[in-house]
Design a binder for these strands. Structure first.
Lengths: 249, 249
DNA sequence: CAAAGTCTGTCCGTAACCGCACATACGTGA
DNA sequence: TCACGTATGTGCGGTTACGGACAGACTTTG
């Protein structure tokens, strides 16, 4: 989204983790984050490198990928407005993965030091972060199983569904070449799988332009992993006290 | 190991996370843990179930596995005396994986409530736990990539090496049937891969009895994932102040 | 309109592994 | 010693996806 409800909001309430905070704390967190645009293929951190900032996606999709020595990469998790990029965060520590944006969008950026202070000060914030960390942990575990056992068509469907949930639109951009990297499959394999989905009327896919036509159909083709991951991620914010509308200020 | 240096120690110092604690705190932690034996195929927790206790392995190997609807399971991490079973722990939360012992051994068991209290009270303890959590996160990410891209022979070698590191012996028990479940491969595939390793003189494998004959050779056959994971796990305790010998009491 | 670049559909030989089956070898206990 | 259960080695057709290549279609740029 390029226009926000109002200038002060800055899309703040559109990250579901932050939305789940008590209104008072939400306002305070608002003071320490900055809305940044993430063009496609922006790298937020590299494996082993110290993480200087935490990102709360508003729209767009960010992937955690494991790079291998031969240059191949494998996606292990996708993160959107339901999550946080950069956890688990340890002072001076780094994660073993690369964070890279797959679908362009926006994030709320919080310095690592501010994040750690907040986690220490606010019980609600800390609980949400830890709960999400656990869910992310589960997502990666499920991806590990999925990568091993499920067909490229199932995994493609899952990827499309997860992205669809996150971008908030039936259309988004992703080339088959890039998709192949995410799924750790040949581009030609992606082309074949996507062709099957397309002929079945589930999607339209023209030169990097994906349109979701039949969500229910995609869910039927996808493996169970989609539902497992979605259920677990939803639980993170559902467990927190429901928040009302953002303050009209 | 069935005999400990002394009764009070109870193998305490053989878990590398606990060993990395300052001596004073180590003694205190000693008061709240209990040495328990884990026969093979003991389940410590199931996906989604609340975790009532944390385990610090002394010997043996515990695996985190993701079960799928069709009954298949995939190993996403193995944990031995370098680690902790049950993190990241959140009050009333559960992990999306099953923890099951693969090679029989012993653990130091700590109640979840005691664990949470300790993490809050002790900075050193908390730092170790969080650092390990990050490393475990990396291990699962690497496994996700490995499961997708590497051959059964590479993965088998990696599994054998990781187990070898943890059991502290050149011999351990694991049937091909069980190994196949861990690697999410047919037993016959395991048989073929193991046969290749065996004919190459790297291992001996007779009716569930594995003997590591040539570690260096195995490392050459294994994929890079072994080294990546080992390096990351080693960093956890290397970052902490080195501890001396256990107190002779 | 022409040219260059990008993206996609398709093909083919090959490799790895599945899914299943069967035979053999080892170990235990009667 | 024999019988039985367990564990392993092996074989074979079928499937999936690799690895590499090529042509066509669309888009952008000049």
């Amino acid at each position: 989204m390029s226009a926000y409800a109002n200038a002060r909001d800055q899309g703040f309430s559109r990250n579901r983790i932050l939305s789940a905070l008590p209104p008072g704390e939400r306002q305070q967190v608002f003071e320490v984050v900055k809305n940044v645009a993430l063009p496609i293929k922006t790298v937020l951190f590299e494996p082993g490198a110290p993480i200087d900032a935490i990102h709360f996606p508003i729209d767009g999709v960010i992937s955690l990928v494991t790079p291998l020595n031969d240059g191949a990469i494998v996606e292990v998790a996708t993160i959107g407005n339901e999550g946080i990029v950069g956890v688990p965060l340890v002072p001076f520590g780094g994660l073993a993965v690369r964070a890279i944006s797959q679908v362009a969008g926006h994030c709320l950026r919080m310095d690592a030091t501010a994040f750690l202070e907040w986690a220490e000060r606010s019980t609600a914030f800390n609980a949400l972060v830890e709960s999400y960390t656990q869910a992310l942990f589960g997502q990666i575990s499920q991806a590990a199983a999925c990568n091993r056992l499920h067909s490229s068509e199932e995994r493609l469907s899952r990827w499309l569904l997860m992205s669809h949930d996150r971008v908030g639109s039936d259309e988004f951009m992703i080339t088959q070449e890039f998709l192949g990297q995410m799924l750790a499959a040949r581009r030609s394999t992606v082309s074949v799988s996507a062709g099957i989905l397309q002929r079945a009327g589930l999607i339209r896919y023209v030169r990097g332009h994906v349109t979701i036509l039949d969500r229910a159909g995609l869910e039927a083709v996808s493996c169970e992993c989609y539902t497992v991951i979605k259920t677990e991620l939803d639980r993170v914010v559902r467990r927190a006290p429901q928040q009302g509308e953002p303050p009209t200020s």
